[in-house]
């Protein structure tokens, strides 16, 4: 199961796995992880709570509950996925359920950044391709697909689609520098002298 595959670490250049399709525009982070599950001081338990309310409503027929989707690691979505709140709990919940990459028409900005920060690549393509990809996946959910980040391709045997991802994200993922902390800290040696030049930190005297 994807759930048991290790969390992203180091350079991420490709993701191999089965796919899961979630249809609909504007799927917000309140749906991905309802607010009551944010009452926690760790992300550990979020995997089981992903889409909790939508899943309850659909009583077992939600894509995240379908037996055939268990173990899938590549999520296919539509437009403006992840809009709404800045809660990193949303990508964390997806990741802990087993999602390792997302392909969609577009993503909300903060959500996209949050995904990148934990090593989940989000690639985009136009709606016609998303539909074609979904059609192909539906034919056989058992099949394994290959998402090649370097080449920006998504493929299986004789089928192949070209996707998009901005160069910055691509570099971060493939170089393993998507975890920005150490990079930022290494530039902080002169932070004090930088700060003294900011008017609001020097009593507006410069």
């Amino acid at each position: 199961m994807a759930k048991n595959s290790p969390f992203p670490k180091g350079p991420i250049s490709q993701i191999q796995g089965r796919c899961l399709i979630l249809t609909g525009d504007d799927i917000d982070t309140d749906r991905i992880i309802p607010a009551r599950f944010l009452r926690c001081v760790s992300f550990k338990l979020l995997g089981d709570q992903v889409f909790a309310d939508d899943r309850k409503e659909l009583k077992g027929s939600h894509p995240f509950d379908l037996k055939s989707n268990q173990g899938a690691s590549i999520l296919i979505v539509n437009k403006n996925f992840g809009c709404g709140s800045s809660r990193e709990h949303a990508p964390q919940a997806l990741m802990r359920w087993g999602i390792r990459a997302i392909i969609g028409q577009s993503f909300a900005e903060i959500f996209y950044g949050n995904c990148l920060a934990i090593g989940i690549p989000c690639l985009t393509t136009e709606s016609s391709k998303i539909n074609a990809i979904a059609e192909e996946i539906k034919k056989t959910t058992e099949e394994c697909w290959l998402l090649n980040i370097n080449k920006k391709t998504f493929s299986r045997s004789n089928k192949k689609w070209q996707l998009s991802i901005d160069q910055r994200s691509l570099d971060m993922l493939t170089s393993g520098r998507w975890d920005a902390t150490s990079q930022l800290i290494s530039n902080c040696s002169n932070l004090k002298s930088f700060m003294i030049n900011l008017p609001y930190l020097n009593n507006f005297s410069k």
Partner: peptide, 20 residues
């Protein structure tokens, strides 16, 4: 602007954030 938890960590550690 709003940030995610990984970025909260970055800001705590470096008072900075990587942004476009």
């Amino acid at each position: 602007f709003g940030i995610g938890t990984s970025q909260v960590r970055d800001v705590l550690a470096s008072q900075c954030i990587a942004m476009n």
